[in-house]
């Protein structure tokens, strides 16, 4: 057996899994999105792109994801730098602290934020007491709450991506920059920042894709109406950004009813698809 077939055999199980669990359903979705009652059609796309409701959701998703990504980068880059430059023991503790939110259950995490952010929670209370905000001020169920919750969850992805790159930057480069007339901040800007760019880009891509799909906490934080494409995706119990996008591009949308009764509004296309693919998990608790 030569090397080529050997590596092919080794890759086979992984490839098979990818094809079965990813490419096949995605392909099916794509086909579905252009199939109508009378053969192939682009009418689903036309409907999606002409309906201000869907476009609004898309825009909000992109806008929030960008904002979350930028905030993650602004917090994650200095944090990763500090983690890379401190001693190994302190670094370990910082890593544990950063990934702790990932290891906490969604429910616990969300209730934590409710304690802090709800109308009678710690932060609004404090702000009210200091006279900074009015009586009706609330953080829970606002976009700000979505952003705060998502930043907490996504920060590890950004921080660890950047950390990996910064630890590989030779510390003597910064020292050399200092001896050549750079202040600390200048050496940061002229040496560390350009050299850690690959990490920042990787982290940002991760954060952006994840935040377009992952809005668990956001949903609890902001309970009314559809907030984002990812939110819709979550509600049909299929946590995959790609599918969610296909889903919405295909025009198969369930809406979380604004009145909050838990009733589902579905359009015909989706119902048809759901019964076909036997994805029964449609309702959110």
């Amino acid at each position: 057996m030569n090397d080529r077939t050997e590596s092919l055999l080794l890759a086979l199980p992984g490839l098979l899994l990818l094809v079965l669990a990813f490419f096949l359903p995605i392909g099916q979705m794509l086909v579905l999105s252009i199939s109508g009652p009378d053969g192939p059609t682009l009418s689903h796309f036309a409907r999606f792109l002409s309906d201000p409701f869907y476009l609004g959701i898309l825009w909000r998703t992109v806008r929030l994801s960008l904002l979350i990504t930028v905030i993650c980068a602004l917090i994650g880059f200095p944090l990763a730098y500090i983690m890379a430059r401190v001693g190994p023991r302190l670094r370990l503790w910082l890593v544990v602290m950063v990934i702790l939110p990932l290891m906490t259950s969604v429910v616990v995490r969300t209730f934590g934020w409710m304690v802090l952010l709800s109308r009678s929670g710690l932060i609004p209370e404090l702000l009210r007491d200091m006279g900074l905000v009015g009586r009706s001020f609330a953080l829970m169920q606002t976009e700000a709450a979505i952003v705060i919750g998502m930043v907490q969850v996504l920060l590890p992805f950004m921080t660890l991506s950047i950390l990996g790159v910064i630890t590989r930057i030779d510390g003597r480069l910064e020292e050399a920059a200092r001896t050549m007339g750079c202040s600390f901040l200048q050496s940061f800007r002229t040496v560390v920042l350009p050299l850690s760019l690959p990490g920042i880009v990787a982290g940002s891509l991760l954060c952006f894709t994840l935040s377009t799909s992952l809005v668990c906490d956001a949903q609890s934080a902001r309970r009314h109406a559809n907030t984002s494409v990812g939110g819709i995706d979550l509600q049909i119990g299929y946590p995959n950004a790609g599918l969610a996008v296909c889903c919405s591009t295909g025009g198969h949308i369930i809406r979380w009813h604004p009145a909050g009764t838990g009733a589902l509004y579905q359009d015909d296309g989706l119902q048809q698809w759901l019964s076909q693919s036997r994805h029964g998990c449609v309702r959110l608790p």
Binding site: D170, R172, L173, E175, A176, A177, T179, M180, L195
Partner: peptide, 13 residues
């Protein structure tokens, strides 16, 4: 001052 390092410390970018 100017310093020359054992590892040269040239800026790779």
């Amino acid at each position: 001052i100017a310093m020359m390092f054992q590892s040269y410390a040239l800026l790779p970018h």
